[in-house]
Design a protein around this nucleic acid. Sequence first.
DNA 1: CGTTTTTGACCGGCGC
DNA 2: GCGCCGGTCAAAAACG
Length: 196
Amino acid sequence: MAYRQPCSGGSATSSYFASRPAAPFPSAAFGTAAAQLDVFECLSDEGGAVPAAVPGAFAPPLMPVERVVPDAAAGYSSHARSAAAAAAGEGPARTTDRIAFRVRSDDEEVLHDGYKWRKYGKKSVKNSPNPRNYYRCSTEGCNVKKRVERDKDDPRYVVTMYEGVHNHVSPGTIYYATQDAASGRFFVAGMHQPGH
DNA sequence: CGTTTTTGACCGGCGC
DNA sequence: GCGCCGGTCAAAAACG
């Protein structure tokens, strides 16, 4: 379908984006620290808080976020293994940063994070009746990948995994953010969409 | 008209 | 060695 313009309409689809001052994907902060496989479970009901954490940083205590290691992560045998080893403090460098979010989204799978994604594949996975979609950043030279999948237990939830680091600025420019001096985490407080 | 979506084929890794 | 499984490619269609 068509790429939905950011900040348009704003129905129930982008409810938490619109109602919340925080953007969940601080693109400017990508690639700051040595990231590892971080899996957040965003237990956000309608109007619930949404984390603006950064890959590589841990969940800040100011929002109801639960870091979990779901089955999905266990399924990624090779990658998850190396990431887990890295998380244990033994794994050496890995070139790709991966994070996974599990957010509540009733009707829309692809949430707007400010980037433009091009779908390049769809597959159905063994343990889930729902297909998994594969996206890639449409900007040339940017190899960031993204996979979106509905939760098999709760179809109301969507699991979104990001892989890689953007090497260009987002179409939606972050206009202000804060950084925690202690941990180096970034918290995006707002975004600016061009032409809005 | 350019870009994205769609969809099956293809391919490589891993387990048996 | 073979088959399953997950990820990607690529061609054609669809969309704005």
